Amino acid sequence: MTKKIVVLDGNPKSSSYCQHLGDLYEIEASESFDIKRFNLSKMEFNPSLDCGYDARQELEPCLVDFRKAILWADHFVIVSPIWWGGILQN
C-alpha cells in the first residue's frame, strides 16, 4: 500500500521560496507516494467567521476538498515561511 501525502504550501504569496520547496518535495515524493497538493495562495475562501458562532458557515469548495484530503492522508507536510522565529501573519 502506497503512503498518501498531503502537501500544503502555507505561504499566502503566490510566488515564493516556499512554493519552490513544495514543488521539489512534491516532485521527489510523487515517485514513490500518492500526493495531493494545496497552495494557500490559490485557495479562495472567507477567513472571517461572519456570523460568529450564532450560525453555521458552510465551507467553500476548496476547504471541503482540503478537509477530505486531510482525512485521506497518512502524512501531512506544511511548508510555511518563518521570519524571526514565527509564522508570517498578514
Rank of each mutant, 00 (worst) to 15 (best):
F76G: 09
A73K: 14
M1D: 02
S16A: 06
S16V: 07
S16L: 06
G86N: 15
G86P: 00
D34L: 08
Q19H: 05
P61I: 09
D74V: 03
V79G: 15
S80Y: 13
S80V: 15
V6Q: 02
S15E: 07
S41F: 07
D34R: 00
S16G: 09
D50N: 14
C51Y: 08
L8K: 12
P81T: 12
P47G: 05
N46W: 03
I27E: 13
N11D: 14
L49C: 11
L59D: 02
C62M: 05
I78T: 10
S30Q: 06
Q89A: 13
D9T: 12
P12L: 01
N90V: 11
F45G: 02
D74P: 12
W72H: 09
V7W: 10
L24P: 00
L21N: 00
S30K: 02
G85F: 08
P47K: 12
K13C: 05
V79Q: 15
M43K: 09
Q57R: 12
P61Y: 08
L49I: 07
M43Y: 10
L49W: 07
T2L: 08
Q57T: 12
T2P: 12
Y25L: 15
L63F: 04
C51R: 00
K13T: 08
P61W: 13
C51D: 14
P12F: 01
D9W: 03
G52R: 05
E44I: 12
C62H: 10
S16R: 04
P81K: 10
W84L: 04
V77F: 13
S30W: 08
N39S: 10
G52A: 04
E58D: 06
N11I: 00
P61G: 07
G10H: 03
L63Q: 09
A29P: 00
D74G: 12
G86L: 15
K42M: 06
C18R: 01
G52C: 13
D54Q: 14
L40G: 13
L59V: 00
F38L: 05
C51M: 13
I87D: 05
D54L: 14
V79R: 14
S80C: 14
V6Y: 08
T2W: 00
C18Q: 01
C18I: 00
G85M: 07
H20P: 00
L88C: 10
Y53T: 08
E26S: 11
R37Q: 03
M1R: 03
C51H: 04
D23T: 04
F33A: 11
A55V: 04
D74R: 13
F45N: 11
P81G: 11
F66R: 09
F38E: 10
Y53D: 03
A69L: 11
S16C: 01
S14I: 08
V77S: 10
N90Q: 14
P81Y: 13
I35A: 09
L88D: 10
V6E: 01
V64S: 04
E58I: 02
F38P: 06
D54W: 07
K4T: 08
S80I: 13
I78R: 13
F66C: 05
G22I: 07
Y53S: 08
P47L: 05
D74C: 12
N90T: 11
L59H: 14
E26W: 03
N90L: 13
I5G: 07
G10S: 12
F66K: 09
S32H: 14
V79L: 14
E31H: 10
F38K: 10
E58Q: 06
N39I: 00
C51T: 04
E26G: 03
H75L: 12
F38D: 09
I82G: 07
